[in-house]
Simulated scan of single mutants.
Amino acid sequence: MSTLTTMPRNGNDVSTRRETSSLPSFSSWVDNLFESGMGTGFLSNFNTGMTLPAVNIKENANEFYLEIAVPGMKKSDFNIDVDNKILSISSETKEEKEQKEENYTRREFGYSSFKRTFTLPDTIETDKISAQYKEGILTVHLPKKEEAKEKPAKRINIS
């Protein structure tokens, strides 16, 4: 409910107060829908069955690791490609179920896909990239080139 107030004019001390009920505008309704989180959750799962998977990137002195949370999939569901310093990880799954009974046929199908791309630094040995899928986590190992690996601190003696 909104409240409208009129201010006094020409020194008159008369104020009137009028309450009106109004429906929210379409644009404010859409804004509220997305701000509440329902909109993004609803749209991200509509006809996809999967949102963009979460990725952790770890680095140590010798390599990078990408850990991608993609439970419920098989190794054969993934495509991993490197092209011109771009690492692409994608998956596409289709599922169909059909149940026939005497009085009805029930048919369901689902489709899900994602694609994540990463620009690799020049320090990655692209010929030695490997991947492993275990317990719902796809791990991609990105070894660094020998010249890019961190060297231990070296003490220089003064002669």
Rank of each mutant, 00 (worst) to 15 (best):
T3V: 14
P8I: 04
N10W: 07
G11I: 05
D13T: 11
D13L: 08
D13I: 02
R18F: 08
R18Q: 15
E19A: 05
T20G: 04
S21T: 15
S21K: 15
P24G: 03
F26M: 10
S28A: 08
W29P: 00
V30Y: 05
N32V: 02
L33E: 03
L33K: 06
L33W: 14
S36C: 00
F42E: 11
L43M: 13
L43Y: 13
S44I: 06
N45Q: 15
N47T: 14
T48Q: 11
G49S: 07
G49A: 05
M50Y: 07
L52F: 06
L52G: 00
P53V: 05
V55T: 11
N56H: 06
I57W: 03
K58H: 09
E59Y: 02
E59F: 01
N60I: 05
N62K: 12
N62E: 14
E63V: 01
Y65Q: 10
L66I: 06
L66M: 05
V70K: 01
V70I: 06
P71H: 10
G72W: 12
G72K: 11
M73H: 06
M73N: 05
K74F: 07
K75W: 04
D77P: 00
D77I: 02
D83I: 04
N84R: 12
K85M: 14
K85I: 02
I86R: 04
I86W: 03
L87Y: 02
S88Q: 10
S90R: 07
E92R: 15
E92Q: 14
T93D: 09
T93H: 06
K94D: 13
E95M: 10
E96Y: 11
K97E: 15
E98V: 12
Q99M: 09
E101C: 00
E102T: 10
N103F: 14
Y104D: 10
R107D: 03
R107W: 07
E108Y: 05
E108R: 11
E108K: 11
F109Q: 14
F109E: 14
F109H: 10
Y111R: 14
S113Q: 13
T119I: 08
T119Q: 09
T126H: 02
T126K: 06
D127Q: 12
K128G: 00
I129W: 03
A131I: 04
Y133E: 07
Y133M: 04
Y133K: 07
Y133T: 04
K134C: 02
E135V: 03
G136V: 07
I137G: 01
L138R: 03
L138T: 04
T139M: 06
T139Q: 07
V140T: 02
H141R: 15
L142I: 06
K145R: 15
E147G: 00
E147I: 05
A148Q: 10
K151E: 14
P152W: 09
P152D: 14
A153G: 04
K154D: 03
I156S: 01
I156P: 00
I158K: 13
